[in-house]
C-alpha cells in the first residue's frame, strides 16, 4: 500500500489531504506495524477527513462506525435478520410436511428438523454491521471508528477484543477471521478519557491546529479560486481568534468556510467590513461573536500584516 513516508505524503495529497511530517510518519507506522491509529484533537481539525483521504488515496472502501451512547454489539458487529428468517419460515411451511413424511414418531421428527437447523442460522440471515463488514471484506478496507469517546466503556472493552484479533465468533457459525486486516482509524474528541488498554494497542496521533503555512496550503487546495494572499489573511485572522478566550475555537473547517465565503463575496481582502459581514461563518456562539467583534480592528490588522510581512 505505502512504500515510504514520502509516498504517504503524496498519496494523501492527491486525495486532497495535505499533511505534516508527523501525520505522514504516524500513518506509515500504523500501516507498517499493523496497529490502529488513535486520532485525537479539537473538533474540525480533520480527524475524520484523514480516514476518508486514506480510503480515497488507495481506492479502498471506507467502512464507518459512528459511535454514540448506547451503541452495542448488535449495532456494531452483526444481527440476525429475524424478519427474513420468519418470512422464509412462512414460505417453507408447506414443505415441512414433505420433510417429515418418513418420520415414524415425534422424536424422530424433531431429529430430522434439527438436522436442518443450519439452514436458518447461515450467513444468509446475518445482517453485517460495520465491524463484521470490515472483517468479511474481500478487499483491504479502511475502518473508521468515529468519536469513540461517545461510546460506553463496555463497548470499548468489546472493541478491544475485535481490534486485537480481527476475528469474531458467532455461536451458530463459528469463528470468522479477517481476510485482510483493515487499516483502522479511531477518532476522539476527548470528552472522555479512554482506557489505557485501548490506547496501548494504538498509535496515538494528536492533531492540533496546523502551522499557518500548512493551513494556508490546506485552504488553497480545498477552496478553488482563492488568492494565496487571501488564504494567508484568513489564516492570520483565524489564528488571532484562536488566541482569544472563546467557547468554541475556530478550526480548519471553519477557516475553509471563511475562505469560501470570501470567494463567494468576491472579496480579495479581509478588511474591517468583510470580517464584520462574514464572521458568523467562523464563530458559532453569540457570546464569542461579541467578543470577536470587540476586537475586530485587531483582527483586521493581523490579517493585513500577514500579506505585508
Amino acid at each position: 500500500m505505502f512504500d515510504t513516508i514520502k509516498d504517504v505524503h503524496e498519496k494523501l495529497e492527491s486525495a486532497g489531504y495535505i499533511c505534516s511530517v508527523q501525520i505522514a510518519t504516524v500513518v506509515f507506522l500504523s500501516y507498517k506495524l499493523g496497529k490502529p491509529l488513535f486520532v485525537e484533537g479539537p473538533a474540525g481539525v480533520g480527524k475524520t477527513e484523514l480516514a476518508k483521504a486514506l480510503a480515497i488515496s488507495e481506492g479502498q472502501e471506507l467502512i464507518r462506525l459512528q459511535c454514540y451512547e448506547g451503541l452495542d454489539e448488535s449495532k456494531a458487529l452483526y444481527e440476525w435478520e429475524y424478519a427474513k428468517q420468519i418470512l422464509y419460515t412462512q414460505m417453507l411451511k408447506e414443505k415441512i410436511g414433505d420433510l417429515l413424511k418418513n418420520s415414524k414418531n415425534l422424536s424422530d421428527g424433531v431429529e430430522t428438523i434439527a438436522g436442518h437447523e443450519d439452514a436458518f442460522f447461515s450467513p444468509r440471515f446475518i445482517l453485517p454491521r460495520p465491524l463484521l463488514k470490515a472483517i468479511l471484506s474481500d478487499r483491504p478496507s479502511v475502518l473508521l471508528i468515529d468519536e469513540i469517546d461517545k461510546s460506553d466503556p463496555e463497548f470499548e472493552a468489546f472493541l478491544l477484543e475485535v481490534l486485537s484479533d480481527f476475528q469474531v465468533s458467532i455461536p451458530e457459525l463459528g469463528t470468522l477471521k479477517a481476510k485482510h486486516i483493515p487499516l483502522v482509524v479511531l477518532t476522539s474528541n476527548d470528552t472522555r478519557e479512554m482506557s489505557d488498554a485501548l490506547k496501548r494497542r494504538c498509535l496515538h496521533l494528536y492533531l492540533d491546529f496546523p502551522e499557518p503555512a500548512l493551513e494556508s496550503r490546506i485552504i488553497e487546495s480545498r477552496v478553488p479560486g482563492i488568492a494565496p494572499a487571501a488564504a494567508k489573511q484568513v489564516v492570520a485572522a483565524v489564528n488571532a481568534l484562536r488566541k482569544m478566550d472563546l467557547k468554541k475555537l475556530p478550526s480548519i473547517s471553519e477557516s475553509i468556510d471563511w475562505a469560501r465565503a470570501m470567494v463567494h463575496l468576491n472579496s480579495l481582502e479581509l478588511d474591517h467590513n468583510t470580517i464584520q459581514s462574514t464572521l458568523a461563518t467562523v464563530i458559532k456562539h453569540r457570546s464569542d461573536l461579541n467578543k470577536a467583534l470587540e476586537n475586530i480592528n485587531d483582527l483586521a490588522r493581523q490579517a493585513r500584516s500577514a500579506t505585508i510581512g
Binding site: 508527523q22 501525520i23 507506522l29 500504523s30 488513535f38 485525537e40 478519557e193 494504538c202 496515538h204 494528536y206
Partner: peptide
Amino acid sequence: RALLESTLIKKS
C-alpha cells in the same frame, strides 16, 4: 519525533 510521540505518549 513522530515515532516516539505516537508510540510512547497516549495522553494529550
